[in-house]
Simulated assay, not measured.
Amino acid sequence: MPRRTPVPVTGEIASPVQDGYAYVELNDAAAEGNATLAEECALAIVYNGISYAVMMVSPSAVEDFVIGFSLSSAVVDSVEEIYDIRVQRNGDALSADVQISNRAFWALKQHRRQLSGTSGCGLCGVAALEQALPQLASLPPSPLPPAEHLNDLRTRIASVQSLARHSGALHAALFVDQAGDISLCREDIGRHNALDKLIGGLRRQGRDARQGFVVVTSRCSLELIHKAVRSEFATLVSLSAPTSLTVRWAREHRLNLIHLPHHSAPRVYSPTC
């Protein structure tokens, strides 16, 4: 069940307002201008005093990311096992000291690995093949969202991506509720980071992830399927075409998977028609 009591968070980090960065256009006119660029920093995650991961992230909704990462990486089984999060910033580096339950900490020590995160595939640093291709419980079947909830979705997404609108270079993960409205948006330089932030945001708000659907603006990689299944989403919509492997995993685990092309109707890959 979703957690109703928020996880205590100390020292939440707000992204500082950036001045524009000067540039010169590479043409005969050599026009000058200023651009706002996406911020990036290193985030070290420490569980009960043990360093676990270093990720490159956008420094917004950091606490949501920590919760979502902890759940989607199976460090904890539920948000109730996260007792406290303390976030600190030192220049371009962030640190999150996370207190988790004894059960989760024991399991973490048994399966501990050094994970070096990137804003790319999201699997870098995973040493064991079984961690890249984990055993996951299948979801209960769920109906597909109404087709009209996908109408003009790309345009609606662009209107709520506030960070990307100013700087670009950011992926988004969004939650569309049962009325078809975008009710939550999280952005990050990494597509898997954005989804973790969304997972954490939904959990902190006590939202039922099955009462709506999730949208990712990025390539639909296998790790996003892992996170969606572990978070018990009913439907994942991707703006980029899925790979054959992601389709097979979505079908095997009964995750509804929809691709929303630029200029044609939505394509339902899972369940099979």
Rank of each mutant, 00 (worst) to 15 (best):
237 V>A: 04
258 I>P: 08
91 G>Y: 11
129 L>M: 15
226 H>M: 09
170 L>F: 07
34 N>G: 14
141 P>W: 11
230 R>L: 08
253 H>V: 08
176 V>D: 07
142 S>M: 07
80 E>I: 00
9 V>E: 02
164 A>M: 10
57 V>M: 05
126 V>E: 12
86 R>E: 08
16 P>R: 12
263 H>K: 14
233 F>L: 13
118 T>A: 01
199 I>H: 01
38 A>Q: 04
192 H>F: 07
224 L>H: 12
157 I>L: 12
12 E>R: 06
28 D>Q: 14
176 V>E: 06
2 P>L: 00
249 W>C: 04
254 R>G: 07
16 P>D: 11
80 E>A: 03
130 E>Y: 03
137 A>P: 08
42 A>G: 07
181 D>K: 05
31 A>V: 12
64 D>P: 01
214 V>I: 09
185 C>R: 12
251 R>K: 15
105 F>A: 10
233 F>T: 08
210 R>Q: 15
32 E>V: 13
252 E>H: 15
159 S>R: 14
131 Q>I: 06
75 V>M: 12
204 R>A: 11
146 P>N: 07
211 Q>C: 10
82 I>Y: 03
105 F>V: 04
147 A>Y: 07
82 I>E: 01
42 A>Q: 07
56 M>T: 11
179 A>P: 00
130 E>A: 02
263 H>I: 09
145 P>T: 03
249 W>F: 06
146 P>L: 07
129 L>Q: 12
230 R>I: 04
35 A>E: 08
24 V>D: 13
56 M>V: 07
186 R>P: 00
164 A>T: 07
116 S>P: 00
152 D>L: 00
208 D>I: 11
12 E>D: 08
25 E>I: 11
41 C>T: 14
178 Q>I: 08
246 T>F: 00
132 A>L: 14
220 C>N: 08
179 A>W: 05
74 A>E: 01
23 Y>F: 13
138 S>I: 06
187 E>D: 03
256 N>C: 09
234 A>F: 01
259 H>P: 07
98 V>H: 00
24 V>P: 12
185 C>K: 10
260 L>M: 08
76 V>S: 04
166 H>S: 14
67 I>P: 02
261 P>F: 07
44 A>W: 01
15 S>D: 13
159 S>H: 15
42 A>M: 05
238 S>V: 04
130 E>D: 11
234 A>S: 13
257 L>Y: 08
1 M>T: 09
71 L>H: 00
153 L>M: 02
122 G>H: 05
205 Q>F: 02
239 L>G: 00
147 A>W: 10
166 H>P: 04
225 I>R: 05
35 A>N: 04
51 S>Q: 05
250 A>C: 06
198 L>Q: 05
38 A>H: 06
174 L>V: 10
29 A>H: 11
196 D>N: 06
175 F>P: 06
144 L>R: 10
157 I>D: 10
86 R>G: 04
15 S>A: 13
156 R>Q: 09
129 L>R: 15
142 S>G: 03
208 D>C: 09
152 D>S: 04
159 S>A: 15
8 P>L: 03
175 F>G: 08
242 P>H: 08
55 M>H: 09
193 N>W: 00
82 I>T: 04
161 Q>F: 06
60 S>G: 13
271 P>F: 11
118 T>N: 03
266 P>E: 13
96 A>T: 00
127 A>H: 06
248 R>W: 05
46 V>M: 06
259 H>Q: 13
55 M>A: 06
223 E>T: 10
108 L>C: 15
262 H>M: 12
55 M>F: 05
160 V>I: 10
19 D>N: 13
245 L>D: 06
